[in-house]
Nucleic acid binder design. Structure first.
Lengths: 221, 221
DNA sequence: ACAAAAGTGTTAATTTTACACCCATGA
DNA sequence: TCATGGGTGTAAAATTAACACTTTTGT
């Protein structure tokens, strides 16, 4: 009832796919922001900010995402809430979201003054307990992509099965048999062929697909 | 940085197994508390309370559990955080946990003045969005019991495979083949036979098992 | 014609499911 | 000895995984 004086913040782990700087392989990246005040001043941290009184939790995450990257998310899901007592002099409860950004959007993004994109598996030491949070988000993404069709949120609405498979391979960092992947993907019945093909390749033109829009797309949770 | 004046509360969905009042079948139950002030005064709601400044999130959930039921939880996991702007005149962000209580503990519990245990699938209309939260917790429990050995948290440390199976059957509300269940359970290698048997049954005495204690028991998340 | 990826077919291995049947105990 | 669940065996069915092979394009 009475005010507890606990600060509420919302942070977001933002995932996007980009080529790895050395290997060139498509890899998971995420943006970090440099802290410009105490505590942990100068350290890299997850983008976030205080929850505004008239802002939904998810809206807060979306705003942070737009503010720090200039991008919009194609998928957003709550990850976990952290609120250990010892986090800092002023007690903070952080509600953390994770988000996916489409590759065609992220291609045009550039690092800002205090924003830097990092390869997800090569993160520097972060402020607070953000290392653990990133690891937790990575686990969640990798687990979820294996049983849920979230891979599509990295892609444009129309895509080939090879592109969809490439997303899985990049996220899970392992090769996947194209023939079996195709059958599994089509067996879900969530994939609809558009009828058209992707031309301009130096091989047989692949068919284009799109995902069926389901009602659960609005309430992922 | 500045105080936002948002109230922080922690609620808990507490599950226990008891016989169904009419069918006698072992069924999922959960305790509800009657609200004694506005908003939603008189309505049933999930047990919970404001987060104290020096209290961990999980500790808050545990305290609520003990306060309202007089019991302790054998398992506690964060469920979700809710914080829509429209929840009430005073904005509240609720961090919700779910908990399991052992059957031998709950047997001795009695309903208090403003506490009532209800069959989980026959919940009355609740205050706030608590109906949805209960449903979400039920989904989570039913999903998790199929891939994680949480069923044991309803049981005493030593139990028979039939008792373990009965927990699965009660939670999922469906019959499970005893032979196949046994093999699956033993295949996980998390089950250790104690060497002793349960006597006093009017049939072949079943072997007693206990679960291996793993390090992940401390950080379920 | 050749390379390269799209797409199809086939089989082995593994996991899941169904159910028959023997075992050990109390009544 | 009978009823009752404990516990084992086994085979069909479904799923997963591995890989050969055919198709269609650009060069």
């Amino acid at each position: 009832m009475t005010d507890q004086g606990i600060e509420l913040a919302v942070s977001t782990v933002i995932f996007a796919l980009r080529p790895h700087p050395t290997t060139g392989e498509t890899t998971l990246w995420l943006p970090l922001v440099r802290r410009i005040r105490q505590p942990h001043e100068g350290r890299w941290a997850l983008p976030g900010g205080p929850l505004l009184p008239d802002e939904d939790l998810a809206a807060s995450a979306r705003h942070t995402l737009e503010r720090t990257t200039g991008l919009s998310s194609s998928y957003l899901e709550q990850l976990y809430s952290f609120g250990a007592v010892d986090r800092s002099p002023q007690r903070v409860v952080s509600i953390v979201y994770w988000a996916l950004v489409r590759s065609d959007e992220v291609a045009g993004a550039v690092d800002g003054e205090n924003v830097q994109w990092c390869v997800a598996d090569e993160i520097p030491e972060l402020a607070f307990d953000h290392d653990g949070i990133v690891q937790y988000a990575l686990n969640r993404l990798r687990a979820k992509i294996t049983y849920s069709p979230i891979a599509r949120f990295f892609l444009s609405p129309e895509f080939t099965l090879a592109e969809l498979r490439a997303v899985h391979e990049a996220v899970l960092v392992k090769r996947i048999d194209p023939a079996n992947f195709r059958r599994q993907a089509l067996a879900t019945k969530t994939l609809v062929p558009t009828g058209s093909q992707l031309t301009g390749t130096s091989h047989r033109p692949p068919a284009l697909y799109r995902f069926q829009v389901t009602s659960s797309d609005r309430n992922p949770r």
